[in-house]
Design a protein around this nucleic acid. Structure first.
Lengths: 221, 221
DNA sequence: TCACGAGACTGGTTATACCAGTGGTAGACG
DNA sequence: CGTCTACCACTGGTATAACCAGTCTCGTGA
């Protein structure tokens, strides 16, 4: 744990936790370096990372101010929100992540059926069969994640690929809280196999099959 | 343009442009500071931003190495990819962005119809009517963006909200290349009004209406 | 009352020194 | 001859101190 990452985590928590209002000025770099007992450079590195994430705006001569992260932040904040225990509960982060996962996943499956080559589709079918053959939930979950990586790669959509990074990370964080988050999907190996074969045959109902599967894990509320 | 942002842009371009292989070691901070004629701190700030974006991994004692950004990068890279002219064409960045926009947008419209309160829905209808009333394309586009912000806010899904940031930014970058990117949507004011009213009435076909509208702008290929 | 300028802030940059891990390699040893 | 170890040269991490470059405020003078 480096000094700058400590400062980064501290300030990020303060901002995401709502302990600053949008537009508020952060303490100056010199003050922060005193309060947090580090050099100014460590503070600056942390601030650059916050700027990169869209949480603050820095301007020479003026103060460093808190931005509206709901408007300027990227999807990678989802993980941070899931990790920060003190983020407003009303954001429904788990539900949001699972809904997006379902929407993107269903469309990715459809595109994959359209675009992936035979070799990729064969891998998908093979992986689904492997998954169905194991009993251990953790092992099955590992297969399931690989399966979805194959599907998203097969969809040939870089935006889906990049979004998946944030979704997987935040899903894992959510799953660490609720271990059975996706068990409704993992238990139904038949539905998973059916999806894989539908993709392989470029069926019309790939989107429906995928959506039905993925939407099982959306929390109510 | 600060020194660290120059260095950041330079290295980011080298990585996204494929001039480094995954796993390659970057030159050391001391070497970079010589080559790019800045102090080591400027280099460090830039590297921290690259690390934050998932483009490199830094380890004390060892080298700073290039990561697989397709696997570890976040959605905000979409904007960078759209901006870097030398990114591999095969990524189909405009198509990817527009597909994701359609998938997320259609689902957001559905959730908005389910969840938004009457006041928000009234705003959506009002905005659609304003949009239909103006002739100027730029003004209409501005209304259209606000309309979608209202819809996404109404969907009460923080993941969609955060993803929108990257999608809007990269769409604008794409639109600056192809000015008529979304004109097929903007021209059909009737479809936009129909969507707004469907949301207001919580119709069953909101998802279909939204998807039909948004998918018009997906480039072929 | 208003305009403007001094000065006290803000962040931006540089230089230098040292600490703290890593990893390659030369040499000692079996 | 092989292998293991200790060392050293390298990597990034931290700190100090000084100065540059904008911004903003507040008091003074027109």
């Amino acid at each position: 744990m480096t000094a700058s990452s400590r400062i980064h985590a501290r300030l990020r928590g303060d901002i995401l936790g709502g302990r600053y209002e949008v537009g508020d000025a952060l303490p100056s770099e010199r003050r922060l370096s005193e309060e947090l007992e580090t050099s100014r450079h460590g503070v600056r590195e942390a601030l650059k990372r916050l700027q990169q994430a869209g949480l603050v705006s820095i301007s020479q001569g003026g103060a460093t101010r808190v931005r509206d992260w709901r408007r300027h932040g990227g999807l990678e904040l989802l993980l941070d929100l899931a990790a920060e225990g003190d983020a407003p509960e009303a954001l429904h982060v788990p539900r949001a992540a699972m809904e997006m996962r379902a929407s993107i996943g269903a469309d990715a499956a459809r595109r994959c059926a359209e675009r992936a080559d035979a070799a990729t589709k064969a891998q998908i079918v093979a992986r689904a069969e492997q998954l169905a053959a194991v009993e251990d939930l953790a092992a099955r979950n590992a297969h399931y994640e690989v399966l979805w990586e194959l599907i998203v790669d097969g969809a040939d959509n870089i935006a889906y690929r990049l979004a998946l990074t944030s979704l997987i990370a935040s899903s894992q964080r959510i799953a660490s809280v609720d271990a059975h988050a996706v068990s409704a999907e993992l238990d139904d190996t038949e539905a998973i196999r059916a999806l894989a074969h539908a993709i392989n045959q470029s069926s019309e109902n790939v989107h429906t099959l995928a959506a039905d599967l993925l939407e099982r894990s959306i929390p109510r509320g």
